[in-house]
Simulated scan of single mutants.
Amino acid sequence: MGAAQTTPQCGRPTEDTWMFAPADGWTYDQVKHLDLPFDWELVDGVIRVRGRTKLWHNHVRDGLASALSAARREPYQVVAGQCVMVDDRNTPKPDLIVFDPRKLDFFELECVPVDKLVLVVEVASPCSRQDDRVRKPALFATCKVPCYWRVELDRDQRLAVHEYWLNADTRTYIPAPMHPVHHDKLVTEVPFPVEVDLEALVGF
């Protein structure tokens, strides 16, 4: 009989053992060296595969990144697909983040500390919709990130941007009071004034 496969309890996983997390989960320092053939993030100590995205998703993400970068105010910066350090067992990778880079080491930083974020943007796709609607808003609200946008494509292939603001007392997100859902054009003053033509982000 062949040797039984056991779950590693310490040390660093390999490309063959990453899926067998120890009882208390992997830490980011244990897994950050992995060269895996897919995009991933660490959720409660478990490596979670990030699903493939369609062209519209990436086009919209990049268009929003450009609009936010053009409108940003000092000291904020905008970056796509960067991991966020919530704690050593949770390093989510939002589609976009706006953050304060002051006192961060630009050349050495791997994950942006969650307390530096002012906005998280998630472009929902079928494989991420539940996470983007429930798990990630709860996580980032608990961490006191001031703003959260969820971008979805409706049945008519029109964009809807759901804008949320943090209720600091309850550490939950509430719909933005003036314009909770943006269609055709996104206009908001937080985290800084920005106006985005949403119709122009879909199609070519």
Rank of each mutant, 00 (worst) to 15 (best):
C127K: 15
L201W: 03
R52A: 13
R50G: 08
E110S: 06
H183F: 12
V196D: 00
W26S: 04
D62K: 06
I47M: 01
T188C: 12
E41R: 10
H57E: 05
K136M: 11
S69V: 08
L42R: 02
D88S: 13
E189K: 01
E74N: 08
A71V: 05
C83Q: 12
A168G: 09
C147F: 15
T172Y: 01
D131T: 15
E152S: 04
E74D: 09
G81F: 05
R133C: 09
T142S: 07
F140E: 03
D105C: 06
G25Y: 07
A70F: 10
W149T: 02
E74V: 12
I97K: 03
R135L: 00
K93R: 13
K32S: 08
A70W: 03
V202M: 05
R73T: 14
D131F: 03
K93Q: 11
F204L: 15
C147L: 10
W56S: 03
A4L: 13
T53M: 06
Q30R: 02
S69D: 08
V196L: 00
D62A: 06
Q77H: 12
G25F: 00
S69Q: 14
Q5K: 08
D131Y: 14
S66A: 09
P92G: 01
F140D: 09
R155N: 15
F20C: 00
F140H: 09
K185A: 08
P191N: 08
A160V: 10
D184P: 08
C143G: 11
L104K: 03
R171A: 06
E74C: 04
I97N: 02
P177G: 05
F38Q: 07
L109T: 11
T91I: 05
D184W: 14
V134Q: 10
D29Q: 05
D156M: 02
K54H: 10
V118E: 07
S66K: 15
D115E: 13
D16I: 00
L104F: 04
V187W: 14
P113L: 05
V49T: 10
L96C: 05
V187I: 11
A176W: 07
I174D: 15
D35N: 10
A70Y: 02
Q157H: 15
V123L: 09
W149G: 07
T172K: 15
D197F: 07
R52Q: 13
